[in-house]
Design a protein around this nucleic acid. Structure first.
Lengths: 226, 226
DNA sequence: TATATTACTGACTTGACAGTTATTAAACGC
DNA sequence: GCGTTTAATAACTGTCAAGTCAGTAATATA
């Protein structure tokens, strides 16, 4: 723009194509833009025209690749969440070692993956909009929640069988671990702004994992019932 | 309606007033209706006309008592959440006994209060819409989250000082306890429908509180660091 | 270079819904 | 009962955004 020295170039932009045809890249670009805006402003408050603008296309183009605004949201979840879960499963499958080490490793993975901006955004978006998409909620539950849960339950079951862990209910404790980590990760990122007493990510993970591990491991004093 | 025996009455409804003036009751009735619908359908998808209908008034009447749709939502939070919190604080203030018993008691209260349909709805609504109302989020955080947190932290601090609890970070563990219970309570109510393995409320509370208590109490074996 | 194909545009239509207002009638005081 | 006040209505308006489509321009093909 500033460079007007070569006079032959000064109207290059007029000759340049006003837009390009890149049908292979458009869907991804639109999904990225939508994830960003939905997670910043919420689904209902985001206009498709904004999404289009951010993706560098016109609104009509969005409708070439996605049937509706709802369909676009569902595509986001399908694309990104499933992918994230597959990565996690793969890592678990390759692990060898004690149950405690494996559990710690999975917890760390869950925790660090949430420090990725995109994944944190996605998790928050999904959980806050789930109530508004019953159909999507079912999909999310069967495809994401249950598999994650089974993965953790399996680790716990093995640990209980070989005596590393106390005989807790593996399903129940597994869910507790996941819920606690995810919720904390979300808080760390989004409630920070209001928070007078703020902990570093490392502090939180150390504290929470210690609390849970102490509760889980054999040899702990039984809590007295009153 | 069925009782047509007294012929003098058969057109009573024509003589009856078409509506009544009940300015004292309207706000509450509108808030109740709004809470119900917002929590079922989400804020954006609920029309004020539906709220009005459910509350037995016309849309115009809603605007007599609330400035806007947003203001109505804020009023819900202010009214119900603050009230719930005050109840809890009062109960805690009156308690005498060991820190463990007190903590257990508070956890039970938190848990059972969430079995109340209205409170569970409210909690879910607030957490899913919070992202869309930054101003409300700030209010909610300072008026609700921080006070709750301080309440639990105080109990923990006392327990640590008198040796009942291990020297954990009371703020951090306090938050963890709240987050875990609230999230579980929400799951119990709303994810039940998709869930193949479902636990009773009592099972969940017993399991979760045992896990947390075992992690918290003194005498537990330290988790080995790897 | 000419023709066909199709990715892409953006102005337009449409419906929905938040918020307003002119009007009506319930209730209160005298 | 009668006049005044005001709670409540319901028809209305204006706006905003989802979704459409006729047209346009980039590219592929011959």
């Amino acid at each position: 723009m500033d460079n007007l020295s070569t006079e032959l170039d000064y109207n290059t932009d007029e000759n340049a194509p006003r837009w390009q045809r890149r049908p292979d890249d458009r869907p991804t670009e639109i999904l990225d833009a939508a994830l960003l805006l939905f997670s910043e402003q919420g689904f209902a408050r985001t206009k498709l025209e904004e999404v289009a603008k951010k993706a560098g296309v016109s609104k009509g183009t969005v409708y070439l690749y996605f049937e509706s605004k709802d369909a676009l949201f569902q595509a986001i979840v399908r694309t990104y969440v499933i992918e994230a879960l597959l990565q996690l499963r793969e890592i678990v499958r390759q692990h060898t070692g004690t149950s405690e080490a494996l559990l710690r490793h999975v917890m760390e993975l869950l925790w660090t993956s949430m420090r990725n901006e995109g994944k944190a955004r996605l998790s928050r978006l999904v959980h806050s909009e789930l109530a508004n998409f019953p159909e999507l909620a079912r999909f999310y539950f069967t495809e994401v929640v249950i598999p994650s849960r089974e993965m953790v339950s399996e680790i716990l079951t093995r640990g209980i069988q070989n005596g590393e862990f106390a005989p807790v209910n593996p399903d129940l404790v597994g869910r507790t671990i996941c819920v606690t980590l995810l919720q904390w990760a979300s808080n760390q990122r989004y409630l920070k702004q209001f928070d007078s007493v703020h902990f570093s990510d490392d502090e939180v993970f150390a504290g929470v994992s210690e609390l849970l591990m102490r509760g889980l491991k054999t040899g702990a004093v039984r809590a007295q019932q009153d």
